[in-house]
């Protein structure tokens, strides 16, 4: 089922949570709403679910206006950041809840509910835990039960609010790969909220980058990563260095006029050389070296301007160059994007 978000505006007191947001989500896609906290991404998700009312604007499911539909009637599955499992019910009763509360006429029989719940528990690979209580499960298991519970009512749309936010790094990585696989199997239109760019890039078909209640850019992971629409998107999707003024670089992604131009270079797009190969190389001094597992982060001060930049090298490159602190080297930006300065990050 496709989702249309039309001119949604939401105000909390004097704080504008969503400012005229319009977005179209095609049927069957897995879309990430990505942004820093306070960017309005969770509010937008809750408005799509019907848990929150927009001040103005419309939400359409498959072209049908659902703005006035109660959350109960929208047939969405919602997964909460902190699971929101019913603490006093077993895992089985949690998953069966959405079926058990149906009016007598449309409620499946006991054996049908039983079969359905067991199917879902198998889907989330937790069939052995039906009689446990949520308190007896790990965070990752709880979130998978929450997902099974949401899927039990056969939702047309699955909405996930920072589904992996409360989990530790390893479980998070495992679970998001699993979510991607699950989505490829069941193909329900899904929207998930995250502030983790890596998570969005890895899992989503499309990424919607949000900031201060507005959509900065929407598109495939490749599009928003390779062709960011503005410095905010560029900065949010990876570490980036600023060079004031336009860098003399052929093939740079040029935007705007010369005055107040700022050049942006991602830290892994900076090469370090012992001797300058051509005129685009800048003289710099190594100020700090930090080893981060597979990569090495080198902080440098540009001689000409005194600006600090960070370069990310692989361990091999770092070893081959044999870099030391306080050494004089040359840096060469590979991929430069120029934006005019009144864009604030």
């Amino acid at each position: 089922m496709s989702i249309e978000v039309e001119n949604i505006h939401k105000q909390f007191g004097s704080f504008t949570a969503l400012n005229d947001v319009t977005l179209s989500i095609p049927s069957g896609e897995l879309v990430a709403l990505l942004g820093p906290s306070g960017s309005g991404k969770t509010t937008l998700l809750r408005i799509i679910a019907g848990l929150e009312r927009a001040d103005s604007g419309r939400i359409l499911f498959n072209g049908e206006d659902t703005t006035e539909h109660h959350v109960r009637e929208r047939k969405v599955g919602f997964v909460f950041q902190h699971y929101a499992l019913f603490k006093h019910m077993t895992v089985f009763d949690n998953v069966a809840f959405g079926l058990n509360v149906r009016p007598r006429g449309t409620r499946p029989s006991k054996s049908e509910i039983n079969a359905k719940v067991m199917d879902l528990l198998r889907l989330v690979q937790l069939e052995g835990l039906a009689q446990r209580y949520p308190a007896q499960l790990s965070g990752g298991q709880r979130q998978r039960i929450a997902l099974a519970r949401a899927l039990a009512v056969e939702p047309q749309v699955l909405l996930l609010d920072e589904p992996f936010g409360a989990l530790d790094a390893q479980v998070r990585a495992e679970l998001r790969r699993w979510l991607r696989k699950l989505h490829d199997e069941i193909h329900v239109t899904s929207v998930f909220v995250t502030h983790d760019q890596e998570e969005a890039l890895e899992v989503a078909d499309r990424i919607v980058v949000m900031n201060k209640g507005r959509i900065e850019q929407a598109g495939t992971p490749d599009l928003v990563y390779d062709h960011p629409a503005n410095p905010f998107v560029l900065n949010f999707l990876g570490n980036v260095n600023l060079f004031h003024g336009r860098l003399n670089q052929p093939g740079a992604d040029q935007h705007g006029a010369d005055e107040n131009a700022v050049s942006y270079v991602r830290s892994h797009d900076i090469e370090i050389e012992r001797s300058p190969q051509d005129s685009t190389a800048l003289k710099a001094e190594i100020r700090h070296i930090q080893k981060l597992g597979p990569s090495v982060r080198v902080t440098l001060a540009i001689d000409a301007t005194g600006e600090f930049i960070e370069a990310e090298l692989t361990r091999d490159v770092f070893k081959n160059l044999g870099l030391q602190q306080s050494e004089q080297v040359y840096v060469r930006p590979r991929q430069v994007r120029v934006f005019v300065e009144d864009y604030q990050i």
């Binding site: 959350v71 909460f80 929101a84 499992l85 006093h88 509360v101 009512v153």
Partner: peptide, 25 residues
């Protein structure tokens, strides 16, 4: 409000939510 919201999204009525989720808690 998380558990109540979860119940509503799953299609429970206000009374069902109160008696099955709020009250036991």
């Amino acid at each position: 409000r998380d558990e109540e919201e979860a119940a509503l999204v799953l299609g429970a009525s206000g009374l069902q939510t109160f008696f099955r989720v709020t009250l036991p808690n």
